[in-house]
Simulated scan of single mutants.
Amino acid sequence: MLSQPPLWFIVIAFVLAIGPLVFIHEMGHYLVARWFGIGAETFSIGFGREIVGWTDKRGTRWKVGWLPLGGYVKFVGDMNAASQPGNDDGLDEAQRAQAFHLKPVWQRFLVVLAGPMANFLLAIAIFAAFFATFGMPRTPSIVNMVEPASAAAKAGLRPADEIVAINGQRTTSFEDLQRIVLIRPDERVRMDIVREGRPQSLDVTIGAREIADEFGQKFKVGVLGVGRQDRVLERLPLTEIIPMSVGYTYRLTRSMIDGLGQILVGTRSTKDLGGPLKMAQIAGQQATLGPFEFFQLLALFSINLGFINLLPVPMLDGGHLAFYTVEAVRRRPLSVKAQEWAFRGGLALLLALLMFTTVNDLASFGIADRLGRLIG
């Protein structure tokens, strides 16, 4: 078992992971805004007091804040960093021409959408580089062996069966199979297989097992109880690298959606929700394993950042997109008061979620147990 990396290393790894992802995200907003002639007053990586910064010839203040938990672009006409529409009475003619909130709704929609999309594009680029260098994991989803008394054995799976789908999700490789099964411990699923050339369907209750990673952290995961053939890394033609990277990113995003859905319906514990502290710990751990593992984690974090920002929560990009959709349907924006209350509610929700995940993170670190032993 590997020892946990020191705190200073975790902090550096977290900043090196989150900083570029936030920069890419905000640069997506900024570049599309520039394309539409929208002016930017501030481009910030991090929140809080400015550590370092400079102002470019267009008047944009580029800066780094002391709290590395996100970032923002404040456009001309914005009331604050959350892009709440400001009062345009004090804007001169040149500022009105560059004001974000005075642009057509479809332009504002694309500017906001560009941030999450930039994160997905970064993940696609990282996977494309891996697939071009090492090949794509594509082990056939054919059962090589079945463990006795396992979930697979109880369902009647046999060696040489090809698993083609689980709950309607295609499993074109053993890697797809693992991705779907791991997040479904104790869940009953429908499995589509091909046996001796004939398609069949089986009802399977996936097993559960507690495993530990290289650092001794324990997780409950789903287990089917089948063995695979030797792992295959397939070299892809240049024309297939990008499409396969897009598909790989989509499947990982689908797993995140499935995981969130399981938490919402109660089939997965809320203890599995992690926050910034857990992300920092994981970043430090993966960095100690090498650059390959760290860049893989960077791609997963990037997908996570893009996905979370698309959730329809005020203060997040998804909340803005929801407002613009309503505006496009109604042909007029929501009232300033309605948007203000929505932003307050979104902020309260995000702060509550941050507190909840921080408590989860501290519990996973064993802080509560240590305090209990000290008190006792």
Rank of each mutant, 00 (worst) to 15 (best):
T358I: 05
K337I: 04
T55W: 03
I282A: 13
N309S: 10
F365Q: 12
A322P: 08
T253L: 06
A128T: 04
V336T: 14
A322V: 08
P199Y: 00
T357W: 03
A81R: 06
P116L: 01
I180Y: 03
V76D: 04
F295P: 14
S150I: 02
M244Q: 15
T172Y: 07
K337D: 09
S201M: 05
A152W: 00
I211A: 13
I163N: 05
I206Q: 06
L347G: 11
D161Q: 08
Y324E: 00
L2R: 13
P148L: 07
I18F: 04
I263C: 09
Q296Y: 07
L238G: 15
D258A: 14
E293R: 12
Q4W: 00
V15S: 13
F292K: 14
M244W: 00
R254L: 14
Q84Y: 01
G53Q: 02
I45K: 10
F292P: 08
F134P: 08
P291D: 09
E240Q: 15
K278N: 10
T133A: 14
D88N: 12
S364H: 14
A338L: 06
F343W: 04
S83R: 04
F323S: 14
I263P: 13
T239N: 12
I206Y: 03
M117P: 07
P5V: 07
A81I: 00
A129K: 02
L351A: 15
M315G: 12
E234S: 15
L67Q: 04
L354D: 01
A352E: 01
I282H: 03
V164S: 13
Q4M: 14
T60S: 13
M279K: 03
T253K: 09
